[in-house]
Every structure is written in C-alpha cells, then in structure tokens.
C-alpha cells in the first residue's frame, strides 16, 4: 500500500470534481455511487499520491478530504 494517501469521506462530498481536476497525479475520480445528499461523489483510487494537499485546499467542503503523508518529499 502507498504511504501517501487521502481519506475522502464520500458522505460529505458534493461531487463538484474540482479535486479531480486539480490533482497533479490523477489520483481522484468520480465514482458511480450516489450518496445520501444525491451526489455522485469523488473517490481516491490511484496509488500515485504524493501527499501534496492540493485536493484538500481546492475542495470547498471542510470535512471531505484528509491528506495522510508518510513519505518525505524527494529533494
């Protein structure tokens, strides 16, 4: 398992796709499931995550994304 990843809480995602577009490593996709609010929510899939946090900042929902980073950035 990759050492960097994000936890994406699909129950509080509004499926706006801003994180999907912003991720430099294309780690996030919009899934086919629909949450209780009625949105097709985002999912973390690709293991190439570098833990940059861009998805966290661009996401308009406060509690949707948590970024976990275990690897040091390569200098």
């Amino acid at each position: 398992m990759a050492k960097n990843y994000i936890k994406l809480d699909g129950t509080v995602c509004k499926g706006c796709r801003v994180c999907v577009e912003a991720c430099p490593k294309q780690c996030i996709v919009i899934g086919s499931d629909i949450n209780k609010m009625g949105y097709q929510y985002a999912k973390f899939e690709n293991p190439g995550c570098i833990g940059c946090g861009i998805c966290f900042y661009v996401c308009p929902e406060p509690g949707t994304i948590t970024v976990i980073k275990e690897e040091e950035d390569k200098k």
């Binding site: 509080v12 801003v18 308009p60 406060p62």
Partner: peptide, 15 residues
C-alpha cells in the same frame, strides 16, 4: 456539510 452549492468558492475560503 456546508450549505454551499457544489463547487462554490466560499467553502474553500472558509477552509
């Protein structure tokens, strides 16, 4: 969740 519409900038600024 916030009351803001999907893709609204306010949530980001709040964060």
């Amino acid at each position: 969740t916030t009351h803001y519409c999907p893709g609204c900038g306010h949530g980001t600024v709040h964060k």
